[in-house]
C-alpha cells in the first residue's frame, strides 16, 4: 500500500493530502513557490506510484485562492498523469473557488478546455 503524502501549508505552499486508503486527495491553499519544480516533485512521484494500483474512483479536490504561472504549468503535468489514469478509471478534478472569484473560476475553465479527457467539476464556496 502506498504511503500517504502530507505537506503542511505555508505562506507560499498549499496543504497537500494524498491518502489512497482513505480516498482523500486534496490540495488547499495558495500555490506561489518560486521553485515550483521542487514543490511538485513529490506529488508527481506519488501519483505515478499510485497510478500503478489506483482506487476505482479518484477525486482530486483543488481549493486554491492564488497560483503563480510556473505552478500552473506543474498542474498541467499533474493533470496529464491524471488524464492517463482516467483512461481506465473514474478520475475527477473537483475545483473549488471562492464565490465571486472570477480569476480562479477562469483558471479552472482553462484547464477544463485543455484536458478534454479529464472530468472537471467546479464548485463555488
Amino acid at each position: 500500500m502506498i504511503e500517504p503524502l502530507y505537506i503542511t501549508a505555508t505562506q507560499s505552499f498549499p496543504e497537500v493530502v494524498l491518502n489512497k486508503q482513505s480516498s482523500i486527495f486534496s490540495i488547499k491553499g495558495d500555490i506561489l513557490p518560486e521553485d515550483s519544480v521542487e514543490f511538485f516533485s513529490p506529488i508527481f512521484e506519488w501519483f505515478n506510484e499510485y497510478s500503478k494500483n489506483p482506487n476505482d474512483i479518484t477525486v482530486l479536490e483543488i481549493d486554491i485562492s492564488i497560483i503563480n504561472t510556473s505552478s500552473t504549468r506543474r498542474l498541467v503535468k499533474l493533470f496529464k498523469i491524471l488524464e492517463n489514469l482516467a483512461l481506465n478509471n473514474h478520475v475527477e478534478v473537483k475545483w473549488i473557488y471562492l464565490i465571486d472569484d472570477e480569476i480562479m473560476q477562469f483558471v479552472a475553465y482553462e484547464f477544463d478546455n485543455a484536458f478534454k479527457n479529464l472530468k472537471f467539476t467546479t464548485y463555488a464556496r
Binding site: 505562506q11 506561489l32 518560486e34 485562492s65 492564488i66 503563480n68 504561472t69 510556473s70 465571486d100 472569484d101 472570477e102 480569476i103
Partner: peptide
Amino acid sequence: RVCEINYTTSSLRQKKLVYHLSVEILQNLS
C-alpha cells in the same frame, strides 16, 4: 504581504489580479 495590505480596492477581481501579477513580476525579477 506589505503590498497586499495596502492594495485597497472594492473590486475582488482587481485586488486578486494586482496581487497575482505582482507575484509573477517579482518572481520573474528574482
